[in-house]
Design a protein around this nucleic acid. Structure first.
Length: 284
DNA sequence: CGCGCAACCTGTCTGC
DNA sequence: TGCAGACAGGTTGCGC
């Protein structure tokens, strides 16, 4: 679940807690987290350094440490970052401990499925190279223009939803927010991206910005595992218009919402408001 | 290069 | 009720 709004929610909660503190120990209980780096190598690179900033790029949390070392954390499907959870918290994999008079609260990464990752970039050039290879335009930044949206879709035969999920084109949109944005822009998820016209792509750009901001405003969406850094649940799941609402009436026209597979993901849409492309129709 | 899909793990829900 | 199978927020790598 952690998509851009969930990661941003976590970042805003953690930043005031960790910025300015010195990372005394990074305890890594699951070596898979930082693969292919050995835990000892990562620890040696980051321990003892002060946290200058906690940033976000796409779905990555960026721990900017003194001396231009960057720890890049990704929550994947089921990861959470919690402030000072009690010892024995289920699925704890990594723990940040800080130096200071009273040490202050720890931060812990918890993840039942163990998909989450922690990677290291040493130097600004390495950081830039890391992101250049993985993430595209920030949808809440000034470069996310209509032209940028059109460039992402132009000439592609893949479904428009696949384009939204491609992090190298638009950074931070995941399965939930893709469904919600496509519904608001009234575009069927299976429309080949290259056939969507500029006015619709502009509407889609606006819808993406709208749903991401609404998601952040609601503190993200909690479907199952996601929690704020203090353990509280997000609320955006209560504002879903179509996602995970199969069989319910479309809030715009009352037609039953259907579920199908698009871009390999469970997908929800109103096929009255979002007209299917020619030759496509199959629900389940 | 574009695209679809299996794989990575574990937990939970679904259908027989 | 029990159990095998499907499915889940994301990303990567492989095959065509």
């Amino acid at each position: 679940m952690p998509e851009l709004p969930e990661v941003e929610t976590i970042r805003r909660q953690l930043a005031p807690v960790v910025e300015g503190r010195t990372l005394r120990e990074l305890r890594i209980d699951d070596a898979r987290w930082c693969r292919p780096l050995a835990p000892a190598e990562l620890k040696a690179a980051v321990e003892g350094r002060r946290v200058e900033r906690l940033d976000r790029r796409g779905k990555y949390l960026v721990w900017a440490l003194e001396g231009d070392a960057f720890l890049l954390a990704h929550l994947r499907m089921t990861g959470t970052l919690l402030i000072d959870p009690p010892p024995g918290t289920r699925y704890e994999r990594v723990r940040w401990r800080f130096a200071g008079d009273d040490d202050g609260p720890d931060i812990a990464f918890c993840d039942p499925r163990r998909f989450g990752t922690g990677e290291l970039a040493l130097g600004g050039d390495a950081l830039d190279a890391f992101f250049a290879a993985r993430v595209g335009v920030e949808p809440l930044g000034p470069e996310f223009t209509t032209d940028a949206m059109c460039a992402a879709a132009r000439g592609r035969r893949a479904p428009i939803k696949a384009v939204l999920l491609d992090q190298r084109r638009i950074a931070g949109v995941g399965n939930i927010y893709a469904d919600e944005a496509l519904f608001r822009a009234q575009i069927h998820p299976l429309r080949p991206a290259g056939t969507v016209r500029r006015p619709q792509l502009d509407a889609l750009r606006g819808a993406i910005v709208e749903v991401l901001n609404a998601g952040i405003g609601a503190g993200g969406a909690t479907i199952d595992d996601f929690r704020h850094a203090d353990g509280v649940e997000g609320a955006f799941q209560n504002e879903f218009l179509v996602h995970r609402r199969r069989g319910e009436p479309c809030p715009r026209c009352g037609t039953e919402i259907v579920k199908f597979v698009a871009a390999g993901r469970g997908t929800y849409a109103c096929e009255h408001c979002q007209r299917p492309p020619r030759g496509v129709r199959r629900h389940r």
